[in-house]
Design a protein around this nucleic acid. Structure first.
Lengths: 254, 254
DNA sequence: GAGTGGTCTAGACCACCCT
DNA sequence: GGGTGGTCTAGACCACTCT
C-alpha cells in the first residue's frame, strides 16, 4: 500500500520554478516588459523569496531576464551576436576596429602579464583600457598589454597619459607586421572595475577572451577582453543570426 | 563630528570573503587539497553559511574550486585548454575527431532546429549524441542535428538506433563536400541530461558552442556542444598554454 | 518616501558519498 | 551512520532608482 505513485526523485523547487517562469516568458510576456516584483512572485508561487531568486538568477544567467536594483526585473531581448572572428587585418587600432580607447597607463607589468608576453618584468608595458559599445549599450571592456619594445618609437612622443596616449600606442601598433594570433574563451566573473564600466554588479558572469597577437618570433600584444555574458553571444564567422533556443530545441529529441 | 573614517562604501561580505579565500588558495593550498567544510569555514569567518557559500560559488564559477556533494570542496587544477578551432578538414566524423558517439535518434525536428537547418519541420532529422572525454574526465556533451537529406544513402542502411546508427551517420557525412562553417559561443546552464553526462548538477554553468556546417548553398549539419565552464577554456589556434590569472593580472595596472 | 532588487542571518532538512 | 554539500525557509536590513 502507500505510494501508488512511483518514487519520483524530487526535482528542486527552484529548478521547477525556472521552467515554469521560462515558459511563461515565452507565452505571456513581451521583450522589455516588467515582471511582478520578487516578493509578489514568491508569494504567488508559495516559496520563500530566496528560492524564487535562485530561479531568477538562472534565467538571468541564460540571458532571458534582466534585473536592475531599484527598478525591477524585465524580459531581456535575445542576446546580440558580437563578431570576434580574428584576422590579421584586424589588429587593435586598425580602421575597422570599433573599440573606443579610454585610457592608458605605463608601468612595470605584473608577473602573469610578463609571462604571457614572453618578456621580462623589468620592461615597461603600456596598459590600454578600451570599451566596446553597441546600440548605446556597453558590451565589453578590454585591457591591452603592449610592451614598450613593441612600439619603440613611442617614448619620443611623450603623449600624456590617458586616452591620448592610448591612441598614440594604437597608431604605433600599425607599423608592426602581423604574423599570427591565438585566442581563448573562458567563463569569469567581473572585477569591480570592469563591472562598473559594463553597468553590472561585481561578480557578474562574463566571457573572458584572451588574445595573443604575434609578430614573427614574438608576442607583440596581449588582450584580455571581458564581455557581458548575459547580453551577448560571441560569433566566429558570419553567423550573426544563428540562434537555437537551448531549452526548447531539445523538447523533442532525446 | 563622529565619522573620523571616510564613508567607505561597504563592500559586500561575500565579495571580501571571496578575495580572502582566493588569496589563501594561492598561498596555503595545493591543487586537489580539501578545504574545511562549509560550516566550519563559516564559523571561522564569522558569517552565515549562506554567505560563505556565495563566496565559494564565485570561486567555483572562476574554476578555482570544485565542490562535490557528500565529499567536500577541493582546490581545482587550472582549467584545461580545449581546442575548438575550426577547419574544413575537421568535420564531425573525420579521422582526427575525438568525440565519442553514444547514441542516435531519428525524428521530426523541433521548430528551432528546423530553422537553424533551413529545412522544413516535416523532414526527418538524425539527432546524434556525442561526448568528449579528456584525461578520463567528461568535458563536453554534444547534440548533432543531421537532416536526412544530408545523408541520403542512409535510409537504405537501416542501422539500429543508438551508437551504431550514430557511427553510420558520421560515416555518411564524410561523403559531403565542406564549403564553410560558422560558430557562436555563449553562456548557458546545463540541462538535466547534459548535466548528468558531464557529472554536474542541473543548472551548472556551461559554454554552449553552436556550429553550423555548410555545404555549397545549404546547412548540412548543426551542432550544439555544451562544455563544462568550470573546468575548461576554449582555445582557437595553438594557444593551449596561454594563461593569465584574471584577478591577479590586474593588481598593478589601473 | 516608496518600491525595487541585493545582502545577510540562523536555523532546518535532504541527497549523496564514504567506510 | 556520520559527514559533506544542496535546498529551503522566514525573516531583517541595505543600496539604489524613481517621482
Amino acid at each position: 500500500m502507500g505510494t501508488t505513485q512511483l518514487d519520483t526523485v524530487p526535482e528542486p523547487k527552484y529548478w521547477h520554478l525556472k521552467t515554469v517562469i521560462g515558459e511563461a516568458l515565452d507565452s505571456d510576456f513581451a521583450v522589455g516588459e516588467i515582471l511582478p516584483n520578487e516578493r509578489e512572485l514568491a508569494a504567488r508561487f508559495g516559496v520563500a523569496r530566496a528560492t524564487l531568486r535562485q530561479a531568477l538568477e538562472q534565467l538571468e544567467l541564460e540571458g532571458r531576464l534582466q534585473r536592475r536594483r531599484g527598478v525591477g526585473t524585465t524580459v531581456a531581448p535575445p542576446r546580440m551576436g558580437v563578431d570576434v572572428s580574428a584576422s590579421l587585418q584586424d589588429w587593435p587600432g586598425s580602421p575597422t576596429d570599433a573599440w573606443q580607447p579610454v585610457g592608458c597607463t605605463t608601468a612595470l607589468p605584473p608577473a602573469a602579464v610578463a609571462r604571457a608576453l614572453d618578456t621580462d618584468t623589468d620592461e615597461d608595458v603600456h596598459t590600454l583600457r578600451r570599451m566596446l559599445v553597441t546600440h548605446g549599450q556597453p558590451v565589453a571592456a578590454e585591457l591591452l598589454y603592449v610592451p614598450s619594445s613593441s612600439v619603440p618609437e613611442l617614448s619620443a612622443i611623450d603623449a600624456p597619459a590617458g586616452a591620448a596616449r592610448a591612441r598614440a600606442v594604437l597608431r604605433e601598433l600599425q607599423r608592426l607586421a602581423p604574423a599570427g594570433l591565438d585566442r581563448a574563451v573562458e567563463l569569469g566573473s567581473a572585477r569591480a572595475d570592469d563591472a562598473k564600466e559594463l553597468d553590472r554588479l561585481p561578480g557578474a558572469p562574463v566571457l573572458v577572451v584572451t588574445t595573443r597577437y604575434l609578430t614573427e618570433g614574438r608576442t607583440a600584444v596581449v588582450s584580455v577582453a571581458t564581455y557581458r555574458a548575459d547580453t551577448c553571444r560571441l560569433t566566429f564567422g558570419a553567423s550573426g543570426d544563428l540562434e537555437i533556443r537551448h531549452d526548447t530545441a531539445q523538447r523533442r529529441a532525446s
